[in-house]
Design a protein around this nucleic acid. Structure first.
Lengths: 227, 227
DNA sequence: GAATTTTATGAGATATATGTCAATTAACTG
DNA sequence: CAGTTAATTGACATATATCTCATAAAATTC
């Protein structure tokens, strides 16, 4: 209940208002993940954050505003971590495979954040664009290297992303196991024009055992607490 | 306003209660498409159907119940139409391509129904299963014919479906044009192991110019009407 | 430690949704 | 067309959400 979540932890040395705002954002992640964005209410968020209802409105205009803030922060963190994880990989086939697999590992390792991200991506187009910005570059690199035989445009990128996101969805719902990342990466590479045997080898080759983390400590949900 | 929508039209020769139920279901399709399932309210549905609030509860227990009824009816219609459209095609590559393209043409030709279907698919797993039931058969046919070189299982089918559904989503949002069906079919065939040149040829070959229809006549939205 | 500024509170005004039901109206039936 | 059944109505009780604001508490400053 009092354990620190990511935003709260980051803000622990800042002023009080920054900490309260962070508490609200962490709570929003929890509640969005649990109830879904539409069903979530400001009341539930303030309850989870253990602040009064009115406090919410000191920091955010409404539910949309906190959702935006949360989504952009998560996206930013994800992009940063993926960038770091792919440092030094120059082969386009490997980069594409690695990006998909690392992304899925990261997002499904902390389901609350993964779910929040999943929902946010459907709502915020520009956020989706930022998450996949690195993707276009890698796809074009592959075309330049002669290993991808498709035209790289918005349609391809959207379809490619949909494959990854639908896998995340199933992963978060327990419909797919830990090999889901490799499996979808394999299919993506085939789609791009990589020979089936190469696609299989690259998609299933062992990844460096670094662990990307969004260190969220589970917050137990206690709806019985009064305001 | 008084134009008949599909369910209402189908029920025009049935009893009064069947017609009222149909009016409610047509209205629900409109409202779900316009406001989204979560944001839709029973009040909006009864307003759109031009019946009193209480009438709703004579026919449906709650929003979930009407949503289920609508979703299953739409799915049933879609499957029926697709079956008919693919009658006589025996080549697995053509069948797969045709299914995706026809489905997208059909669902995007009547956006309200397409949107309702899109949302429903994410909610009702068994409905999704029924819509894609023909898919597994065609995929396995392709493996038997030696043209697909992937393992056919739930993971593959989900990923394949996600490609189609994400294309529907973009099509309904105006982010993709009429060639979207061919484009995604081409990518799907490549993914399945069909040679790129064959994939391109089949996915872009002209389809029989039959038109599948869900004859919904747009119902104008007038939120200013009082109950 | 008094004064001042910042932050937090929660009751309450407003709004809208759900589901019920006694009363009304419309549709059959003989 | 009187009698009976089926269908519809909309006010209402209940619930829950949003957002505001006067007030209180906490933190900071001097």
């Amino acid at each position: 209940m009092t354990s620190l979540d990511l935003f709260t932890r980051e803000a622990r040395n800042l002023g009080k208002s920054a900490r309260t705002k962070a508490r609200l954002m962490d709570a929003a992640v929890s509640v969005f993940a649990r109830d879904g964005f539409e069903a979530a209410s400001v009341n539930e968020i303030t309850r989870a954050a253990e602040v009064a209802n009115g406090t919410f409105y000191v920091y955010f205009k409404d539910k949309d505003e906190i959702a935006t803030a949360v989504a952009y922060r998560i996206a930013h963190d994800v992009v940063k971590q993926l960038d770091a994880a792919m440092d030094g990989i120059s082969d386009a086939v490997e980069r594409i495979s690695c990006a998909t697999r690392r992304f899925l590992d990261l997002a499904s390792s902390t389901p609350q954040w993964g779910k929040a991200l999943f929902r946010a991506v459907w709502i915020y187009n520009d956020l989706r664009d930022s998450v996949v910005s690195y993707l276009r570059a890698d796809l074009e690199r592959g075309v330049a290297q002669g290993v991808f035989t498709v035209e790289i445009d918005d349609f391809l990128i959207s379809t490619f992303s949909a494959m990854t996101m639908s896998t995340l969805f199933r992963r978060l719902n327990g419909e797919a196991g830990p090999d889901a990342g490799s499996r979808v990466a394999q299919l993506q590479l085939r789609m791009l024009g990589v020979a089936p045997d190469v696609a299989k080898r690259v998609a299933f080759q062992a990844l460096e055992p670094i662990t990307l983390t969004m260190p969220v400590i589970a917050r137990e949900t206690d709806r019985s607490k009064k305001n």
